[in-house]
């Protein structure tokens, strides 16, 4: 039985710390893999989200606020949608650029990839919002005195 007042055990904490970079690397991989293989922005976003859920449960504070993440994602996606029109193309037209990146090798990246960044930001933003909204930190550090809280609520209502 874990002591409720101190939060999760150091083992969980350590495990989460170790898993974080690993998961993030996988997320990046999945993100870029998406073009030719299963994956993509949505999966990457969910992976990042999963990491955040884990960290949140282990008692780490959330690293971002949800709304800026969501807003940025929206703006990026909309910009990608509108940008082709600057060149006189139909909106949401695809622009493909081929380039060689370290580690990943030759990557054909297009505006779709930028669009996918927006997707990733929004999906992880959603998870941050859910964690924030549901006060998931309570799962990590339960309120000091549940009974006390209840009487307070009753008094105030």
């Amino acid at each position: 039985m874990i002591d409720q007042t101190t939060g999760p055990s150091p083992i969980v904490s350590l495990g989460v710390r170790a898993a974080t970079p690993l998961a993030l690397v996988i997320a990046v991989f999945v993100f870029f893999a998406g073009h030719n293989r299963p994956g993509g922005g949505f999966a990457a976003g969910l992976l990042i989200g999963a990491v955040l859920v884990l960290r949140s449960i282990a008692g780490f504070p959330l690293p971002f606020r949800a709304i800026p993440l969501l807003a940025t994602g929206t703006i990026i996606a909309c910009t990608v949608a509108l940008a082709p029109m600057l060149w006189g193309n139909v909106f949401l037209d695809q622009v493909v650029v081929e380039q060689t990146l370290p580690l990943l090798g030759k990557v054909k990246s297009g505006s779709a990839l930028v669009f996918d960044i927006g997707v990733t930001l929004i999906v992880s933003g959603l998870i941050v919002a859910v964690l924030d909204g549901f006060r998931a930190d309570h799962l990590a550090t339960p309120p000091p005195d549940l009974a006390n809280e209840k009487t307070n609520a009753e008094n105030s209502s």
């Binding site: 898993a19 690993l22 991989f29 999945v30 893999a33 999966a43 992976l47 990491v51 799962l139």
Partner: peptide, 24 residues
């Protein structure tokens, strides 16, 4: 290798889910 990313993702996410539920 088509399904390999799935394995990686499922591993991480499944782990997360289990931890959350345990916590609950």
């Amino acid at each position: 290798t088509t399904y390999l990313p799935i394995v990686a993702v499922v591993a991480i996410v499944g782990f997360t889910a289990t931890v959350v539920m345990t916590r609950f």
